[in-house]
Simulated scan of single mutants.
Amino acid sequence: MTKLNQILAVEKGVKSDVQRKVTDAYHLIQKAPLLSGISRTYQPIDDEGEALPPESTRVQVQAEQVLRDVAVTLTRLFDVTATKDVANCSARADVVVDGNPLLRDVPVTYLLFLEKQLTDLHTLIAKLPTLDPSETWALDANTDTWRTEPVKTTRTKKVPRNHVLAEATDKHPAQVQVFNEDVVVGYWTRVAFSGALPQRRVNELLGRLTKLQEAVKFAREEANGTEITERKIGEAVFGYLLG
């Protein structure tokens, strides 16, 4: 009994072989000289005339035979494709995660679709932004975002001050140096917000997705192991076309 995965294994080779042979046939029938033949003989007007040998060219390509050869080639492809497509309608399997069926009786064609979508989803999740690990974050129920604890910092302002280097005397004025002093004039309270995710959440999502991807692949392999009946379609098609 043939299995679906066996048909899938040969399908690519059959398609490639058919494409090559049909292309060769197409180019062959474009070569008019190969489809043409001639035969001619020469007879002098009298016995005194020059005798020339006969000339002939054989027909090398017969269009009808080319068609029959193409039909044989395409019959194999028609049969393989029909067998695969009919089998795909009945090839099904459950997607089981951690021993529990998550999806039941899923067709193999949908499993292939699902496998591709999960690959794209994995790429998206792996690129999700994560919270800065240097901060301490808590979920803010009011804004549904993550926030840090308030951090208080000072705001300063430069205020000019005088520094007396020498006191004034009867003979000399005081020597004074002017400098700026940073004076606290207020306080900033900073709270950061973020819509990113904790790294542990991203890791959890990737772990779940990886399990699901493995389960879908396993289900696909199981579905592809379904026993099938080979279909004979090409003979009927070309029996009608060339009959």
Rank of each mutant, 00 (worst) to 15 (best):
R190G: 05
A126M: 00
I125F: 07
T156E: 11
V176K: 04
P101Y: 04
V185K: 00
Q177W: 03
V202K: 15
E135S: 12
K157D: 05
L103T: 03
L206D: 01
V191P: 06
G99P: 00
K171L: 12
T156Q: 10
R220E: 14
R190I: 14
W188P: 00
D182F: 09
P107S: 01
E221C: 06
Q175C: 00
L197Y: 15
V178D: 02
Y110W: 14
K211F: 01
T119H: 06
D132F: 02
F113T: 14
V202E: 05
E222D: 12
P101L: 01
V106C: 04
K157S: 11
L112G: 10
A138E: 09
N180G: 09
N203C: 02
Q213C: 00
A168N: 02
V176I: 15
W146M: 05
F179I: 05
K211T: 05
T119L: 09
A138I: 09
V191D: 04
T153L: 01
P129W: 08
T148P: 00
A219P: 04
P160F: 04
K116R: 13
T136Q: 12
K116A: 14
V106D: 04
P160K: 14
T136R: 09
Q177K: 13
R208K: 14
Q117V: 09
G99A: 01
G207R: 01
R208S: 10
G186C: 03
W146H: 13
T210M: 04
D170Y: 03
P129V: 06
W137R: 04
L121P: 01
T123I: 08
L209E: 05
E167D: 14
T143D: 09
H122W: 10
K127I: 02
T109K: 08
V183P: 06
L121V: 03
L197R: 13
H122L: 08
K127L: 07
E149H: 01
D182M: 09
H122I: 02
P160G: 00
V202Q: 13
Y187T: 15
R190K: 13
K116P: 00
R147D: 04
S194F: 09
D98W: 02
V159D: 03
V108F: 09
A168V: 02
V183D: 11
E181G: 07
P160A: 13
F193T: 12
P133C: 08
N162A: 11
D120R: 11
N142W: 03
T148N: 02
L114I: 11
R200E: 15
W137L: 03
P101D: 02
E204R: 07
E167W: 07
E115L: 08
D120S: 13
Q177D: 11
E204H: 10
Q177A: 12
T154P: 09
G195W: 04
E135Y: 12
W146G: 05
G195R: 13
P107V: 02
P101T: 07
H122G: 07
K152S: 10
D182L: 13
K211H: 04
D98M: 02
V191L: 02
L111A: 08
D98V: 06
D105F: 12
F218W: 11
N142E: 15
F218I: 11
N100F: 11
H172V: 09
L212F: 12
L121I: 07
R147N: 07
D140P: 01
D105P: 07
S134L: 05
A138F: 07
K116E: 15
G99R: 00
E135A: 11
E181H: 10
N203W: 06
V108C: 10
A174S: 11
Q117K: 13
V184D: 12
R201G: 00
